[in-house]
């Protein structure tokens, strides 16, 4: 799983206010539109929606598993494109775009259960057990 074009193991989570409130708890990020359907609807969204920071965390979870315990996440960037609304099954995914001397570049994104991309970006990691292809 270290060749260009390979997909890495995804990180899948069904997202609700429970996930977001727990994240708000550790990040002091108690934002009305992430806690309260009414607040989000008044802003034009279909329901409460999760913070971008937790998608960022899920992408890190995926990359950390891929890189291994002693691996290093060197770089990550994403853009948020759609809201992660209540009840969606969110999947963090990654596809290898380059492999150079043990450093792996990836295209990364999150998507909902219907395949809509919510956030998209790229990452660079150095896995702990890299073996040349």
């Amino acid at each position: 799983m270290t060749s260009v074009g390979d997909s890495i193991h995804p990180y899948v989570v069904t997202t609700t206010v429970e996930n977001w409130n727990r994240f708000a708890a550790i990040n002091d990020e108690f934002i009305p539109h992430s806690m309260d359907d009414q607040a989000a609807i008044s802003e034009g969204f279909p329901s409460a929606f999760g913070m971008g920071n937790i998608q960022w965390a899920y992408l890190h979870n995926m990359l950390r598993t891929f890189a291994g315990v002693n691996g290093t996440i060197m770089k990550l960037e994403i853009q948020f494109r759609r809201p992660n609304t209540k009840g969606q099954t969110l999947t963090a995914q990654g596809k290898i775009t380059a492999v150079t001397d043990g450093v792996i570049s990836l295209d990364i994104w999150t998507q909902d259960q219907e395949g809509n991309q919510l956030a998209h970006g790229s990452a660079v990691v150095r896995p702990s057990t890299w073996v040349p292809a």
């Binding site: 609700t16 206010v17 429970e18 409130n21 727990r22 708000a24 708890a25 550790i26 108690f30 009305p32 806690m35 309260d36 359907d37 009414q38």
Partner: peptide, 21 residues
Amino acid sequence: FANWNRYAAVNDEFVPIHMDD
């Protein structure tokens, strides 16, 4: 929710009836 979720945060009391209308 602003009060309740903060309290859930310290008391690990994330119960749906307290978080979701």
